[in-house]
Design a protein around this nucleic acid. Structure first.
Lengths: 330, 330
DNA sequence: CAAAGTCGTGCAAACGCATGCAAAGGAGAT
DNA sequence: ATCTCCTTTGCATGCGTTTGCACGACTTTG
């Protein structure tokens, strides 16, 4: 029954002071090899490990990063979470996860709760942040990085892909394969990601002297995307090409097209998505899509985070390049 | 520039003692309405929020639950994570996530790190736990619940579905639809989940006087499962029905069958999975599968956790019932 | 051999909060 | 008006660390 074993217990057993054992567990502190050995042995015998909370209180560094994310059903985010968690562990940080509903009111309370834990940094995936909270974070010295979202307020670090270019590439591809009536199934209109992808897409159409043939909103939700597809393809003539704002919705759209409406993809209608989630490569869909690079995105995120935590001032990362992955739906 | 605002600052501004403000933020403490109002106002003005770490140190309750999980590419686990996080937030807890590689050495160091954070509880998804660490947890009074895994050592809380029954149902279903040469693509042989599912499956075959026609190991990995499928279906005569140990692998198997080998599912070979992840319902696969109930599983997990944290002794939950979801692959 | 420098160690003060205990305040009863 | 009892409040202590400062021992240099 070890119960709670503190540094004092170890100190007594090793015949040294609390400071000594503390220094043994603090990399870069000045300890002689002999006492270090004694302390290590005593610690081992007692099963002692430093209390991370106490350390955090004193040093002001909790070594924990808050992550708030709205949903995990879009496979893009689990991928990110896994990558991010591993990358941060490598830097000695750990991830405290908070689920925020889609409504921003929820986000606020959740962010406040996160701050209570004295996190060293905050990454916001798939959600926005009220500016006063951003202000509070800045005041507390907690760096915030927006993931896959920009925000109007400047001075905010944001890691994003070049959604505008991606949207344009989607348009050019659909046009290139001969689509004449091109539709768009949008995500959530409040998201910068949506706006940028769509703006680029429209620009691509315009450059070719075309305009959008149909538009519906799927809100980045699976069920909504299917409804959007049903609405869009009820009319005649129907679109012969559609850009869906992310892969996750694209799966739903393709399901409706093939399974409900009996249409052939890409025979009757070409579909292109955005993200390149792992399942996009599965033969059942073989989804043509605009690829975001998850590794690069999390690398940029942790890089920005650690430089800001270190007291440096990270310069806002450039939008990361995207690439067209041509498969069989467009 | 609020910097760090402590309870003392609030106390001064409200003209009361630190204790008073502490009590205002401690539910169930005795404070008069008048001072509560003063304190609340002062706190609001200063942007004060109690430091969760300091509180945790003093009370011994960090209100954080550690979750260690090996991978997130199998969609079952993101679903669980989302559900679990939401359920725990409702109880006032938060989730500290640790990714553990598949090797158990990694798991050990990760669990030690988690314990450093004085977590109130620990849930281990898709990984095992060395018995000495389990012992250490018990000594520290940290309840541990194994999720979707049993372990030989008794006294361990484990939330599992009735894998045995599920395996049997899979066998009975394949037999019922007329399969004569039945194969099994296994997950990782070290996992109790695998053992139980397979044992039930074999029992189901045996009850019908049949035996396993082929067996390959997919290790719960997507790529491995595809390789396993290629090996299994190289031989002739080939199986006409296969039970894949989880849905995630089943998608890979079906891909190989249809896209690489040109076989019809279920025409040439019936496939049944396990889990019923959301994408199993997508028409592109329409996977027949044995459904685990994620809500029930996390409910059981949370329930066990909170009673143990509360000092009670949770009785090991019964294996949760599974159901056959018949779709179009078997 | 003495002075100066280096290295290792202990002491004590923080970090921000919760809580038992005692004192103070108020209300009600006689 | 006095006594009792209950509610509210302040004081002080402690949670498990890290770390600046000072002191002792030991090594180096002149």
């Amino acid at each position: 029954m070890t119960g709670k074993v503190t540094s004092l217990d170890v100190a007594k057993r090793a015949g040294v002071s609390r400071s000594a054992v503390s220094r043994v567990f603090t990399p870069g502190a000045s300890v002689s090899a002999k006492t270090a050995a004694k302390v290590r042995e005593a610690a081992e015998a007692l099963g002692y490990r430093p209390n991370a909370l106490a350390r955090a209180m004193l040093t002001g560094r909790s070594k924990i990063i808050g992550l708030v994310v709205a949903y995990l059903d879009n496979h893009f985010y689990p991928t990110i979470l896994e990558l991010l968690s591993c990358a941060l562990e490598r830097e000695g940080y750990h991830v405290l996860v908070f689920m925020a509903g889609r409504d921003s009111e929820d986000v606020d309370t959740v962010v406040e709760q996160i701050l209570d834990y004295q996190v060293d940094g905050l990454v916001l995936g798939s959600v926005g942040l009220r500016s006063d909270l951003a202000e509070r974070c800045r005041a507390s010295g907690v760096p915030v990085v927006l993931f896959n979202r920009r925000i109007e307020a400047d001075g905010q670090l944001a890691v994003v892909s070049d959604s505008h270019a991606g949207g344009r590439m989607a348009a050019e591809h659909l046009i290139g394969i001969g689509c004449a009536r091109i539709g768009h199934i949008a995500g959530w209109d409040g998201a910068s990601t949506q706006k940028d992808r769509e703006a680029g897409f429209l620009e691509g159409l315009e450059n070719a002297g075309m305009r959008l043939f149909a538009r519906e909103v799927g809100d980045f939700r699976f069920a909504r995307a299917k409804e959007a597809a049903r609405r869009m393809f009820r009319q005649t003539p129907r679109p012969d090409g559609v850009f869906v704002a992310n892969d996750y919705m694209a799966f739903g759209v393709i399901d409706v097209l093939r399974a409900e409406l009996g249409l052939s993809v890409p025979g009757d209608v070409a579909v292109i998505g955005f993200d390149d989630v792992p399942s996009a490569a599965w033969p059942a869909y073989a989804l043509t899509t605009i690829r975001q690079d998850p590794e690069a995105m999390v690398a940029a995120t942790v890089s920005a985070l650690v430089t800001e935590i270190g007291g440096g001032i990270a310069h806002p990362p450039d939008p990361l390049p995207v690439t067209l992955v041509r498969r069989r739906t467009a």
